[in-house]
Every structure is written in structure tokens, then in C-alpha cells.
């Protein structure tokens, strides 16, 4: 079993199975291009730095990849119709502890950066599920988002979308 070490931005090392990393387009491209999975070369021992992913987030990403090991990996840029996607129960439970917090957003950023399409899809869907049927202020409160609009701007947006309130 080939282990490849990922190094987070806070310099934590995570040895990960080579097989798992096929879910990440970014890492997979790096491994293939640099022959990092070839045990006969010196490159095999080279850790992969991920300066945009913190250790705790990377840990969650690896946990997700371990659960989804063997799942078919999407190829190409075709985006699914998110409206028709249902978040499976395990993934729902996986996202829940970090829901409404920056950790969930960091996980989404990491999924995008690492090009893990399934994780990105499910994460986006889980976020959008939290928006349904809620007003702007409710969403701001739940997600801890500061109000970025002036009262005039907010009033203008509200007026434009008054019918939906």
C-alpha cells in the first residue's frame, strides 16, 4: 500500500493511501505528473504541501475520502443539477457538526481547491439546504455573516424582491 504524505498549511503531516487521493483532481494530477506514486524513485518520499488547507480541515477531507473510497470519480467540468441532488444520510451527519460555521465553508473551499467534485457537490448542496425558506437576516444570523449593506442598499434590494418576502 503506497502512502503519500500531505502537509497542511500549519505543517501537519497526513499520510494518506494513494488510492484515496484519486478523488482529488488536484493531487492526482500532481502525483501523476511528478511520479510520486512510483516507489522506485526518490520522489515517492516527497510530501505534498497544501498551503491553502489547514490541518483540521484536511483531516475532515481525508475522513470524507476514506468513507467514499471506491466511489466513482466524476470527470470533466459538467456540473450536476444541484437541485436534484439528495445529500446522503452519512454526509448529512458529516456536515452537521460544522454546519453554519466557517469550518463548513473552509471544507467547501478545500474541496474546490483540491478538486474533489463529489465533496464539493454535497457540501454546496448542504449549504443551500440551509438557505431554503429563510430570510436574509435569518441566514446572516445562522451563519454569522455581518451585514455588508448600507440601510439604503438593503432597502433597495428588499424592495426589488419584496414579493418573495
Amino acid at each position: 500500500m503506497v502512502l503519500i504524505t500531505l502537509v497542511s498549511s500549519d505543517e501537519q503531516n497526513f499520510p494518506v493511501e494513494r488510492e484515496l487521493l484519486k478523488q482529488s483532481g488536484t493531487i492526482e494530477t500532481l502525483i501523476v505528473n511528478m511520479n510520486l506514486d512510483d516507489e522506485d524513485t526518490d520522489a515517492a518520499a516527497m510530501p505534498i504541501p497544501l498551503p491553502n488547507v489547514k490541518g483540521d480541515v484536511l483531516e475532515k477531507v481525508i475522513q470524507w475520502m476514506e468513507h467514499h473510497k471506491g466511489d466513482p470519480v466524476k470527470e470533466g467540468d459538467n456540473e450536476d443539477n444541484n437541485a436534484e441532488i439528495v445529500v446522503p444520510q452519512w454526509d448529512d451527519d458529516f456536515f452537521k457538526p460544522a454546519m453554519y460555521g466557517s469550518k463548513h465553508l473552509e471544507l467547501t473551499v478545500a474541496a474546490s481547491y483540491l478538486d474533489i467534485k463529489n465533496l464539493l457537490t454535497l457540501s454546496c448542496k448542504a449549504i443551500s439546504n440551509t438557505f431554503k425558506g429563510k430570510t436574509g437576516p435569518q441566514i446572516r444570523e445562522e451563519w454569522g455573516v455581518p451585514n455588508e449593506f448600507t440601510p439604503e442598499e438593503e432597502e433597495a434590494i428588499r424592495k426589488e424582491n419584496e414579493w418573495s418576502e
Partner: peptide, 11 residues
């Protein structure tokens, strides 16, 4: 409607 409501959340 959800999209419209979302517009006042953040830029």
C-alpha cells in the same frame, strides 16, 4: 424566492 431572499445576505 429563495434566491431573491438570499440577495440581502451578503455581497
Amino acid at each position: 424566492a429563495d434566491r431573491c431572499r438570499l440577495m440581502v445576505t451578503s455581497r
